[in-house]
Design a protein around this nucleic acid. Structure first.
Lengths: 131, 131
DNA sequence: CAGCTTTAGCGAAATCCTTCGCTACTCCCC
DNA sequence: GGGGAGTAGCGAAGGATTTCGCTAAAGCTG
């Protein structure tokens, strides 16, 4: 039977999506080889996963070429946003601000990053102000 | 057999942790009642979950009182940070900045939030500058 | 086109998460 | 101390995810 379409990607699914986002459209073999860098599973497993992901519509498949070529069904930002929202809801009680504040106050916020973020905020505030 | 200690909390585990963070130390019964607000599962299930979470050391149990009292093993910020880090690694390729920039550019970033965030950045930059 | 390599896919096993039924234990009240 | 109510826990079922073996199909090479 088929699966709930477009549910949240699971762990392994996310690993595969990252590969597809980075490499672009790829054959099962190529995905599998990239996957080896992270884990050592069988080629069969990769193929099966791609099949499952196709059912879930997490990836699309081009059958007009041989071997078949897979690509992510949604762009990285789209998936990121969806997962971020979920994180905000389940872990930060729905407060995006809480998440950002915590992210910024963690050690790894570099000063160049901060500058860039501040610039973005000024941009956004400017827009808000004119609205 | 025992379970991998202190792995990431799963969905239901997170719901329970949220209850414990909000209510403070609680009996199984109290956790169960709070849980009912979100889902309707059996009391047995709640008890079992607390047992599993104890094995995973996600919660601690005080056996010196009757009924036993559970509390979260780690504070909310600690768990949040861990999950955020994981999210950054698996979804944002390790770039905290990428996550924050995306969070800020999503619609729900309110202007008051922005002000507050900007204040934090100025704080941080001040500290960096003196280092 | 025969045979070898690569690719595609199915079905089942292994693992994890979530659920609950059933049993035993503790507590309290009469 | 006996009996009912609430509490604790085990073991197993059900569902989802991840794994792979085995088979079949497609493509390549001589």
């Amino acid at each position: 039977m088929s699966r709930p379409p477009a549910s949240e990607p699971t762990e392994v699914e996310l690993q595969i999506l990252r590969i597809l986002w980075e490499r672009g459209p790829s054959t099962a073999r190529q995905v599998h080889e990239a996957l080896q860098a992270m884990k050592s599973t069988n080629y069969s497993t990769t193929v099966k996963m791609l099949g499952v992901m196709l059912e879930k519509q997490l990836v699309a498949r081009d059958d007009s070429v041989r071997p078949q070529v897979f690509q992510a069904a949604h762009t990285r930002p789209v998936v990121q946003r969806k997962m971020l929202r979920r994180m905000v809801d389940t872990v930060y009680g729905g407060s995006l601000k809480a998440l950002v504040l915590q992210a910024l106050s963690s050690k790894e916020a570099e000063s160049e990053d901060l500058t860039e973020i501040r610039a973005l905020i000024e941009d956004l505030e400017a827009k808000e102000g004119n609205a």
